[in-house]
Design a protein around this nucleic acid. Structure first.
Lengths: 251, 251
DNA sequence: CGTAACTTTGATTAGTATCAAAAATGGTGG
DNA sequence: CCACCATTTTTGATACTAATCAAAGTTACG
């Protein structure tokens, strides 16, 4: 039962990328998956290991990161319910980054071998997965810009805008309020700043009346100005295909 | 003739990602391509436009970039002969970044429609292209780390290490010397620094005996130390599949 | 040769990091 | 339900890295 529901989630995800036919869906439903509950901070994939399975998030949050030899951590992506967690690693020989649970979370686990077979047997499904990874990559590119060329205020404003939109797609945010389950230290590692500075920037955004916070809940008070300050445009999220283009006025 | 050679280049590139059978190769050879010579700084793809063609670099260098509303530019990738220039855009509706010639260069141009058809008809070829884009993404991820969590010396050292290896794969570097056709301003835009600071760091790397430069030629004098300072590991380049794993001791 | 693009150097400033410690929050076991 | 401990958030003071501004050399090129 639970597996059934989980498989449907995978189908829905891929259909949002590309239409699938009945045979495609049947092949996905035949996947030998199992569900798993992950504790916060537990690892789904470790850098240097050969990927054995690929997961789809059912609930909770997860993130990818790398650690430098000096011990600094850079978060490379944050994932929300409905998203694939490691298509990026599953078709390469060895994982080049870590994937870790951010909160407690539920995942469907697909063995890599089965996933690869599915991709070979069902070109259409492979294509949908490919597009999914391409959109992940588009986000990576935007993050390079964020961290390379925006100052601290813009960086954080941009991150908050991105999360607002992605959470709406995941059905986890209404209007412009959402629960951001990250500590300020994790935010810092996502935007390449220190936790202390993140704290000051968040307060500054509040002071300017752009957002308001209550513990980990964020409300975007002035979307237009926040977007402007964060140099945010939703283009790179590629909502064209089935996303909430209509919902967002994001230019 | 020229087209023939260009098509072979595409075949070789894809074969380095995944073995292809004769039918696959035949399908590639049937692609309606044409060659084109690009002036330095001319655009291959512009952000916001629907991608119409996808190019493979035959000679010269190209790069991807985005520009913020404040006018800052961030280079997101640098491409070398043999590489695909915009698989990343070709399977999405609208380009989210620019692709521009760095030097004068020769490309083979493939119409997007033909490329998409090829991907649908030849799952194997699609898979090879997918893997190619996944490796591009792995480089994006490493660049997020570079720009987010390494100081200026490490950033530039890392970039120089990456180029050394990739140029060897492209057959454009012997040992640890190569021609780097980028201005210091372009290097700055790739690593998220100012040109002035890039200049100082390059001099510092020379002073420390790690590299030596003569106009745009770079020689890596002390590979081990440079790699160490730059926190460089070749893992993310995914040379496992047919790359020069043997050539490089890169851990 | 002359001019534009690029590199180099110097002086100063700005933006973040670092260090340290206090306040708040959240969870746990008694 | 309270007391306690660990984690997280907040604040303050100071240090540094890299940016900015300005201008002199240098190189490439038409």
């Amino acid at each position: 039962m639970a597996e059934m529901e989980a498989l449907d989630r995978i189908v829905r995800r891929l259909e949002s990328r590309l239409p699938l036919d009945e045979a495609d869906k049947a092949a996905i439903h035949a996947l030998p998956v199992h569900r798993r509950n992950m504790e916060p901070a537990s690892y789904l994939v470790r850098e240097g290991e050969a990927p054995e399975s690929c997961a789809v998030l059912l609930s909770g949050f997860a993130y990818r990161h790398k650690v430098t030899t000096t011990g600094a951590r850079q978060i490379i992506a944050v994932h929300m319910p409905g998203e694939f967690l490691d298509l990026q690693n599953s078709f390469l020989e060895v994982a080049d980054h870590n994937v870790q649970a951010l909160t407690r979370c539920d995942v469907v686990v697909i063995p890599v071998a089965a996933l690869r077979k599915l991709a070979m047997d069902r070109p259409n499904v492979a294509h949908a997965m490919w597009v999914d990874t391409l959109i992940d990559s588009a986000i990576f590119r935007e993050w390079i810009v964020n961290v390379g060329r925006r100052d601290s205020i813009a960086r954080i404003a941009h991150l908050l805008c991105e999360f607002a939109l992605r959470l709406r797609v995941a059905g986890l945010a209404e209007e412009y309020s959402y629960e951001l389950p990250m500590t300020q230290e994790q935010i810092a590692d996502a935007v390449g700043l220190t936790p202390v500075h993140v704290n000051r920037v968040l307060k500054e955004l509040g002071r300017q009346g752009l957002i308001s916070r209550e513990k980990r809940a964020v409300e975007i008070v002035d979307w237009d100005r926040l977007r402007q300050i964060g140099d945010f445009s939703a283009r790179y999220l590629h909502f064209e295909r089935g996303g909430p283009t209509n919902l967002v006025s994001a230019h």
